[in-house]
Design a protein around this nucleic acid. Structure first.
Lengths: 348, 348
DNA sequence: TTGTAGGCGTTATCAA
DNA sequence: TTGATAACGCCTACAA
């Protein structure tokens, strides 16, 4: 079963050249005469030879591998972002080593990073929601790591590379849309405030309200955990604390679906009694009753860009030509208007 | 920035022992006196030394890495299964190299597998829906590969290792539930029939109908692509071709949500005019209006089991003690009754 | 219990 | 344009 794989030595012998010539044919690092090149390629084809990347990485000090640390693959954004990460990495010839963290709030950062470095990854994409203790760890550690790191969904700090959706803007346009549609009392169902993205969406909501001269009060806010169930409960709570509410911005579509369900149980018609705007544009959002107005975010693009940025930095390091990046790189989300926020009053 | 990492040599020198002693302390392959053991561990701690896994893998011929080839991370099942795969791998000390395939129907299998072997993975979890041409490729290739492979959501064949949910049974209990609830004309919105799982769910539906002495006709079937939109369209089509239909088994929850939307647009009340049963139990399913009856499948468990099986085989190979597995390993799904299939007629 | 030396499969350096 | 040969960092006989 488990025979010895063919090595560069086997190829060299059969092609009657030295191993360095075979290596040069394959890497293109040094010119090789057309004649021998073809002969070597021929043998490579015949034997199905493929260079052992462990050996290659060991000597060349570049594994062509990047580490991805992610979390929350059960959610729409993170799982799509991972797809973008993989696509870009694959196109650029990098393999992915995947680590998942299940409890970002308590998990230790150091062992995860150390383990990836152990695998000699050329860089890391850190796609874990920002939370106090891991931010502190990174601030202290990032500059002493031997490899570059790109952060997703994190607040930027000097010297760190970040890619993110502009969640502040997303919260702002969602809320502004409700205001422009004539709604007066706009609540918020927020995500966990340990998530930087959730905090930014809340701030966008606040800024829109303040900009329109509306008050912002804690009783207008309920906090969920992104799940439909928490959205349902949040709407019950909000309705009790803030009965005049006639619209609500919900920080993700899953909670919005829970909120729609709660509205129905409270005999509130959407959008006539209560308008709802979500966030994400999950595939189901266009098929709820009524169809859900939401904020679409370029999640795949965030993943791609993070890898593009990372590999550029990696390439720049070996070229010793440090390309200065602007950070954070913010991608703009987009308002998708559907039925759940149909205008209450005519606004000219 | 990029300094030389500490090596086993550095540790050996500082601890005033040989490299083999350091190695033995770390691997436990040979006994070391308590005294020197502690001294070495002390230095390891101080220097933060971690063995280079490329070097280790090169010489020990075991990278402690497994390749995962997946697809459809935008869907509920596959993304959760990946979580299970990662959990089990991480607990067993394996790292994951992730490859995604975007067009399983046309993608070439060989380069993906070859690339993973290039990275010296110890085994592969193949989580790509079974489709004609890749099945053919695997049949020919699987026994000549140097490493073991475990297949997810595939039909088993002699010598292959498979882990899956019992989709046939799932389709059967879903349909039986509708029959037992008094529904007479049960349609099917199926997934792409190139997916083995979709085919099995259809067969379960068929068997339940035949078992109850009902006819099975092509006009009772519409095929979607798992998306809510395709579910919506499928219901329109089905309603036109099969107007007496009073219940429908939908092969996944996303299509079921689309179908519920279509039912509403057709002024059909669910479940009174049309009962619906989905498949997956996505988090949203409990919050639709009405709440969706569905089949819950142990997707995380499938992922965990696949890695458990794979690593057992890997361990058995190096022990030269081939543990015979029973294949396929089928996990049972479970019926979750909610409102969308509320009984039409009393059945005692 | 410990040390020495060879080799895993490559790429990189130096000569030719 | 090519070929020896020395690393890369580690494990593992074999020797002491």
């Amino acid at each position: 079963m488990s025979f010895r794989q063919t090595t560069i030595n086997d190829v060299a012998k059969r092609a009657q050249v030295s191993v360095s010539t075979v290596s040069n044919v394959l890497t293109g690092n040094r010119p090789v005469s057309e004649e021998t090149r073809e002969r070597v390629l021929q043998i490579v084809e015949e034997t199905g030879y493929r260079p052992n990347r462990l050996a290659r990485g060991l000597v060349s000090r570049s594994s062509k591998t990047i580490g991805v640390v992610a979390s929350g693959l059960e959610f729409f954004g993170p799982s799509r972002t991972l797809v973008g990460i993989e696509q870009e990495a694959s196109e650029r010839g990098y393999a992915l080593i995947l680590s998942l963290i299940h409890e970002p709030a308590t998990a230790e950062v150091e062992p995860v990073v150390a383990n990836l470095i152990t695998h000699q990854v050329d860089g890391i994409v850190w796609a874990i929601p920002e939370i106090g203790h891991n931010r502190a760890w990174w601030r202290a550690a990032v500059n002493s790591l031997p490899i570059p790191v790109v952060f997703l969904n994190h607040q930027v700090w000097p010297g760190s590379e970040c890619v993110d959706v502009d969640n502040h803007y997303g919260g702002y346009i969602a809320t502004n849309h409700l205001l422009a549609s004539g709604f007066q009392h706009i609540g918020l169902i927020a995500g966990p405030q340990t998530w930087y993205a959730a905090e930014m969406r809340r701030k966008g909501w606040e800024e829109a309200l303040c900009g329109a001269g509306r008050s912002v009060d804690p009783r207008q806010i309920a906090i969920g955990d992104w799940s439909p169930q928490s959205g349902e409960q949040a709407l019950f709570a909000l309705r009790a604390a803030y009965p005049e509410m006639d619209a609500v911005f919900v920080s993700n579509d899953q909670m919005a679906i829970g909120a729609m369900r709660a509205a129905s149980d409270l005999n509130l018609r959407v959008p006539d009694d209560l308008a709802i705007v979500g966030f994400d544009d999950i595939p189901e959002a266009a098929f709820t009753q009524p169809r859900l107005t939401t904020i679409r975010q370029p999640v795949i693009e965030v993943g791609r860009l993070s890898v593009a940025t990372l590999t550029d930095i990696i390439a720049a390091e070996s070229d010793a030509a440090a390309t200065e990046q602007q950070s954070p790189i913010l991608l703009q989300p987009e308002l998708i208007v559907r039925e759940s926020s149909r205008a209450k009053h005519r606004t000219s």
